Amino acid sequence: MTRNDALAVAVDKRLPSYVQLRDTLAAKIARGDWKPDVVLPSENQLAAETGLSVGTVRKAMQMLVDEGLLERKQGTGTFLSKRAFHASLFRFFAVTTADGSPIIPKSRLIARARIAAPAKVARLLDAEDCIRIDRVRSHSDQVLLTEEIWIPHHRFPGLETLPEAEIGPLLYPLYLDRFQVFIANAVDEVSFARASGSVANRLGIAPDDPVAVIERTAFAADGTALEWRVAQGPAERFRYRSRLT
Rank of each mutant, 00 (worst) to 15 (best):
A231L: 11
P210D: 12
L159S: 07
D99P: 11
D222V: 09
D222E: 09
A221N: 12
P210E: 12
G197S: 06
D126P: 02
E147I: 09
H139W: 06
W150G: 00
G158M: 08
V181D: 04
T96R: 13
A122S: 15
A200M: 05
R112Q: 08
E147V: 12
R178T: 13
R123M: 14
T96A: 10
Y175P: 03
E148Y: 12
V181A: 13
T224H: 12
I115Y: 05
G158F: 02
Q142N: 13
A231V: 01
I131F: 03
D134Y: 00
D209C: 09
A221D: 09
V95L: 06
C130R: 01
R132C: 03
I214P: 03
L124Y: 03
E128T: 12
V199D: 01
T217R: 14
I205Q: 02
F179T: 01
D126H: 11
D208E: 13
V95N: 06
R123D: 15
A119G: 06
P234I: 00
G197T: 11
A184I: 09
N201C: 00
E160S: 11
P105F: 00
E166Q: 07
F192Y: 04
D208S: 07
D129S: 08
Q142M: 11
S196N: 01
S140W: 02
T97N: 04
N185I: 01
W228N: 13
D177F: 04
D99R: 13
L124F: 11
V213Q: 15
A218F: 00
R229C: 10
P152E: 07
D141C: 06
Q180G: 00
G223K: 07
V121T: 15
A212S: 10
I115M: 15
H154S: 07
A127W: 03
P157N: 04
E164N: 15
I103G: 14
L109Y: 09
E147N: 11
I104K: 12
V190K: 05
R178Q: 13
K106H: 13
L145W: 04
A200K: 03
R114D: 03
R216Y: 10
D134G: 04
V181P: 04
I110S: 08
V95D: 01
A113V: 12
V121F: 08
G223S: 11
A119E: 14
P234C: 09
A220C: 12
E164S: 15
C130Y: 08
R123C: 12
V136H: 07
L203C: 06
P102R: 05
V143Y: 14
P169W: 01
I115R: 09
W228D: 04
I133K: 03
G233D: 04
D129P: 09
I151C: 02
A225S: 15
